[in-house]
Amino acid sequence: MESDGKRGPDLAKRTREGSGGDDLVTALARLFPREKAEKIFKTPTANLANNGSAQHPEKRKAGGHGPTLEDEVVFLLNVDPDDVADDGPHTPAEWWGPFAKCVYRWEMFMGRQAPVPLMRGPRGGLKLAPKFAEWMMGLPDGWVTDVPDLTREEQIGRIGNGVCPQQAHEAFRFLRERLHEELTEGHTEESSSGDS
Rank of each mutant, 00 (worst) to 15 (best):
L77S: 04
E38I: 12
N51G: 09
R178D: 10
L175T: 12
G125E: 15
D82K: 08
P122V: 08
E181H: 10
L128V: 08
E189A: 15
P140V: 00
A37I: 01
F32I: 09
T188S: 15
T184L: 11
T188M: 15
S196C: 06
N78V: 00
K127R: 14
N50P: 04
H90D: 14
H65T: 05
R16H: 08
T145G: 10
L11A: 12
P89R: 14
M110R: 12
T26K: 04
W95H: 03
A12T: 10
R14T: 12
D23C: 08
F174Q: 15
G88I: 07
V84T: 07
G88W: 05
F41T: 04
T145S: 08
T26F: 04
D195S: 15
A85Y: 03
V163R: 10
N51Y: 10
L128K: 03
V25R: 10
P67S: 09
G66F: 09
A171C: 06
H169D: 06
P9M: 05
E58H: 11
G160I: 09
D195M: 14
R7H: 12
D22Y: 00
M110Q: 11
R152N: 01
V79K: 01
V84M: 00
A171N: 10
N78D: 11
H187L: 15
V79Y: 10
V25D: 01
E94C: 10
T68E: 05
P57E: 04
P44F: 06
P9A: 13
A37W: 02
L77E: 05
G52I: 05
E58N: 13
Q55T: 09
E38T: 14
P122Y: 01
V163L: 11
R178L: 13
D86Q: 12
P33Y: 09
E182P: 00
N50V: 06
K131P: 01
G121K: 02
W95G: 07
G194W: 14
A29G: 00
F99D: 10
E134F: 01
T184G: 08
T15V: 07
R152T: 09
P122D: 11
F109D: 10
L183Y: 08
N78M: 09
S196I: 15
T145V: 05
E185K: 14
L118H: 04
D10I: 03
G160V: 08
I156E: 02
P117Q: 08
D71F: 07
R112M: 08
A12Y: 04
H56D: 14
L76P: 00
D4K: 04
P117T: 08
G162M: 03
P81R: 05
T45Y: 07
G160W: 01
E153S: 11
L77W: 07
D146A: 14
C102L: 01
R14P: 05
R158Y: 15
A93W: 02
F174T: 15
D83Q: 00
H90V: 03
A46L: 08
L76S: 02
E35I: 03
R158A: 15
R60K: 06
D146H: 10
A37K: 06
A133P: 00
D83Y: 00
